[in-house]
Design a protein around this nucleic acid. Structure first.
Lengths: 245, 245
DNA sequence: GTCTATAATACGATAGAC
DNA sequence: GTCTATCGTATTATAGAC
């Protein structure tokens, strides 16, 4: 059993929870999307994300990340204390960045089919950047690095919050309003998306097949909206009765 | 680059697809669920599964698996050639074992709510064994170990096949029959289940919330079954129209 | 802040005794 | 078939020069 227990460093690293340990000089106010002309700290965060996507959590090490970032390996420990410290920070960094990028788009979605189409579009567009794949890898890694658990949960929550708003808006005009739980469904949607992303890595054709089928399911729920008031009422009561049983 | 390509041992291993390389003596006919009184090969397979669950793919090594199995580390390479060879075999082993265990139960499911309830029950019962968590970890690892991709896809397919049969049976009596695609939905269900399992590792309360919401959704689809023939017909046509658009 | 150098450990894999 | 012993490499993390 590995006895060498350590967290962060031997000590002397107990102040900043996770933010910049010593950004004393400047470097703040710089959250651009450039790649090589930003501070070392951000290079490492970006390097961690790309390494997670391209190599997976199993091959993500201080050295592989530093190589991807083009900086020295020791800087990982200077800036983040440990490898999982870096990964936790990178998780938050990536999630905030992506959600901000899609926030406007998300808030303009008005139908269930629109939400699914957004998922498909984002999925394709971000494939090479691996936005969702990062969350999947970190969730997998959270099993052995307890620190990653809260970090990935927080990262997922950013997405969940947005999806929940979309669902609330979208379901409001269907017979589901009142019986469906947007908060719970948003979690299910986010988790399922992660699972589909992982699945695609092993079986791309199967994943595409799954997305097609989900599209059909969304079409059904959309079609519910066109039911006459009598049928809607009957359906709604039936749902409630089924749930109560 | 590891060039030592082989399977099982140096050679002479082209007959049994995946079974024991040299069970020449006896040891066959023993596929019990005991833990310590089975061949080394099976000890390693079980050790790999528990290690994947408890430590995650990132910390799963020949040494950690051997320790969990209570055997010598070198035996990993003797029996499986490499670590990923062992993991690929363990994936198949675990999936076959679990699906066989639940096959009868799966085949007795007749409603959508029943399928979801089964998922919940299996999820809770197998939590400590981590049946699904293994697939999640291997899918995550497949990113960097190409050999794991086909192996995990095959493992998932065992589940997908069963789920597809259930869905075909269950959806047959709903207005969805004909428009819904059981094969695609089965893939979506399996992938989503994996995602939910990962999510639960990071946020158990959120995952429970998600499952509750899915139960409500299943109730809706079940309620559809109670619609009168006129409404069903209208709904079905509307779904097809929506899909065609 | 960044680098080099290095300590201590863990890893995959092999050779060879039994 | 299993074990010990080992090689070469990769890993986390620290110390100290600059």
């Amino acid at each position: 059993m590995s006895e060498g227990r350590r967290e962060g460093a031997s000590e002397g690293m107990t102040e900043g929870t996770n933010a910049a340990p010593k950004p004393a000089t400047r470097t703040a106010a710089n959250a651009s999307t450039a790649e090589n002309s930003c501070g070392t700290r951000e290079k490492l965060l970006r390097g961690a994300l790309t390494t997670l996507v391209e190599q997976g959590i199993a091959k993500t090490s201080a050295r592989s990340v530093a190589a991807a970032a083009g900086v020295n390996q020791a800087l990982v420990f200077y800036h983040f204390g440990s490898v999982d410290g870096l990964l936790a920070a990178a998780c938050r960094y990536g999630a905030e960045q992506r959600v901000a990028r899609y926030r406007d788009e998300l808030r303009s979605i008005t139908t269930l089919a629109g939400l699914l189409e957004f998922g498909r579009r984002m999925h394709a567009r971000e494939r090479e950047e691996g936005t969702v794949a990062v969350l999947a890898q970190l969730l997998a890694g959270a099993q052995s690095q307890p620190r990653l658990g809260p970090a990935t949960a927080a990262g997922l929550d950013l997405w969940i919050t947005e999806i929940e708003q979309v669902l609330t808006r979208v379901l409001d005009v269907t017979p589901l309003a009142g019986v469906a739980d947007p908060a719970g469904l948003a979690r299910a949607v986010a988790a399922s998306f992660v699972g589909l992303e992982l699945y695609e890595g092993a079986d791309p054709a199967g994943a595409a097949h799954a997305l097609d089928a989900l599209e059909q399911l969304a079409a059904l729920l959309t079609a519910l909206d066109t039911l006459g008031p009598v049928a809607r009422r009957a359906l709604r009561m039936q749902v409630q009765r089924t749930l109560r049983r």
